[in-house]
Design a protein around this nucleic acid. Structure first.
Lengths: 138, 138
DNA sequence: ATATTTCATGCAACAGCGTTGCAAAGTGTA
DNA sequence: TACACTTTGCAACGCTGTTGCATGAAATAT
């Protein structure tokens, strides 16, 4: 494959832009917050759960999206912003509201880094704050 | 209940120390790393999954243990060290090895704090690093 | 243009984790 | 001893994530 397609986000990652893939990508782009598999399924409505899963898995391994655990045992998917690889750009903090069970994305708040003990190799970091969101605190 | 039992860790939290509860507590204490429900079940062998679950739920709400998501969709339980409440004392970082799927506990590395946007109320934080542990990096 | 291979999709089914209802066993109390 | 309350085990369930398989679509070769 030569990476010359008409969907820039997928093209950049050498992912063949099938209609389903574009659909999933648009759904994720439209949502302000990281979405779960079920949420995507509901939003799209016409696409099979396993197909969405496979698209997301492909996206994740090609750095189109990355995943976070939302603090409730559910995986959520979020579009990678980084130009090149899914790097520090994407290492921002998240907030899980224990009341409304929504996950918020603090893109402007980067994850403070720590120094690991010798021998540990870091691939990614997840910084998840749990609490109550402004809406639910009323 | 008057909190005067013979198991200090449970007594302090006003949890009646039944034999099963002590068993779960000892299992958790003996393990160096945070354990999952299944791990506890296997280790104990004689106790029903749901009973363990209920004990852990009770422990968690009485701040005997706290839970972390291990980066693999599995909940893990860890004994709270804090004297009083489950506070900063317990807010240390964790490491999930993507190769051996074990979760490590960096008790000496505290989670660096961030400033939340207005209106968000923080209850707890999870700082989870994913990568390769020294054993697996060989 | 047609045949052949490759890839993507939908359906069905499954495993594992977390969770609950219910009845029996255990514990404490009057 | 009788009674109330708690704890436990068994069974079952829902949900998330995941895979096998057969069909359909797309790309490639003939």
């Amino acid at each position: 494959m030569d990476c010359k397609d008409n969907c820039p986000l997928l093209e950049r990652r050498c992912v063949k832009p099938t209609s389903n893939r574009i659909l999933v990508l648009k759904t994720l782009t439209a949502a302000a917050r990281p979405m779960s598999l079920s949420e995507i399924e509901e939003t799209i409505g016409t696409m099979d759960r396993s197909s969405i899963f496979r698209v997301l898995t492909l996206f994740a391994s090609n750095h189109v999206v990355h995943t976070i655990e939302d603090g409730n045992g559910v995986l959520r998917y979020e579009i990678c912003d980084g130009e090149d690889e899914c790097t520090l750009q994407d290492m921002h903090t998240h907030f899980y509201c224990e009341r409304c069970h929504r996950t918020f994305c603090f893109k402007s708040i980067q994850i403070p880094s720590i120094e690991l003990p010798d021998g540990y190799i870091m691939h990614s970091v997840n910084y998840m704050v749990k609490g109550i969101c402004p809406n639910c605190a009323h």
